[in-house]
Computed example of a mutant assay.
Amino acid sequence: MAREYFTHKGVLFPCLDYSPEKLSYVENEFQVRDDDVFNITYPKSGTNWMLEILSLIRCGGDPSWVRSVLNWERAPWVENHLGLEAALKYPLPRLLCSHLPVQLFPKSLQRSKAKIIYTLRCPKDVLVSLYHFSKLLRIFRDPGSLDSFLEDFLSGNVPYGSWFDHVTGWMGLKGNENFFSITYEELQQDPRGSVQRICHFLGKELSEEQVAAVVENASFQSMKGNKMSNFSQLRDEYMNHQKGELLRKAELCSLRFAGICGDWRNHLSEAQSQRFDTIYRERMQGLGMTFPWD
């Protein structure tokens, strides 16, 4: 069953640990609570980095929790079987993760005050990161050549569907008081300021020392060396640890935060980049927003 997909409402999902029945349950019956905090991303957009930041903010910068509890137990994924089971048992207040596009997200969000933190990343970097990750993750199909994967990505023929649909869907909530968006690039360029903004959104003001502790303990080096955060504990049926690791590269700048921005330049040809730009302009022109990578 590994590497096989099914389609649910026009979106691809892996067969292993996902099902149409559970996805329908999440959309129509899962009850979002007012005190829930959701970490939402398109895959490979900074999900685990934001999870680490939110975990540390919750603990005032104290790394004990992130060093003793697996990250997918700290913030379960509501859309897969194991994550949903954990989310339903999670002690309040809940910290939860999801890659779901907005149209498949629990409908009960609409009548709740739950906080949504949505992290975006340069889609060319997402493409390259997802391409390499697909080689490691056994629940994803082998991506084939980068050229063929580029076409799959641009057409949305990848797990969780189109990046363009995902971003335009979730960014439609921009302006709602319980919705906060931030880019991977902002997190990297100004980690301290970004953490302070996230804290303010969550209504959890930390001291300068606590903010500094969050930044330090969510650094690339800290996460890479933390077996609770680096996915080294993920079972072999899900990930081929012989082929590589989750945290693929580091930009060890003075703040020592997470992976490289602009790494796509080391992988995409000029023709591939131009092909991507053409589709990007077509799909994003109506959004009326600019991003750090534009």
Score class of each variant (00 low, 15 high):
41 T>D: 05
41 T>Q: 04
41 T>K: 00
42 Y>E: 02
43 P>H: 13
44 K>D: 14
44 K>V: 15
45 S>C: 15
47 T>G: 06
49 W>E: 05
49 W>T: 05
50 M>A: 03
51 L>D: 04
51 L>S: 11
59 C>M: 14
60 G>H: 06
62 D>G: 06
63 P>H: 05
63 P>L: 07
64 S>G: 11
65 W>A: 08
69 V>A: 12
70 L>Y: 12
70 L>H: 11
70 L>W: 10
72 W>I: 10
72 W>M: 12
75 A>M: 12
79 E>N: 04
84 L>P: 01
84 L>A: 06
88 L>F: 05
90 Y>F: 14
91 P>Y: 00
93 P>D: 09
94 R>A: 06
94 R>W: 04
98 S>M: 00
99 H>F: 01
104 L>E: 08
106 P>T: 09
106 P>V: 08
107 K>P: 04
108 S>P: 05
119 T>C: 15
119 T>K: 03
120 L>Q: 03
122 C>P: 01
125 D>E: 15
126 V>R: 03
127 L>D: 07
127 L>P: 01
129 S>D: 07
131 Y>N: 07
132 H>M: 02
133 F>L: 09
134 S>C: 15
135 K>R: 13
138 R>N: 11
140 F>I: 02
141 R>V: 09
142 D>A: 10
143 P>Q: 12
147 D>C: 06
147 D>S: 12
153 F>Y: 12
154 L>M: 14
159 P>Y: 05
160 Y>M: 15
170 W>R: 00
172 G>H: 00
173 L>I: 00
173 L>G: 03
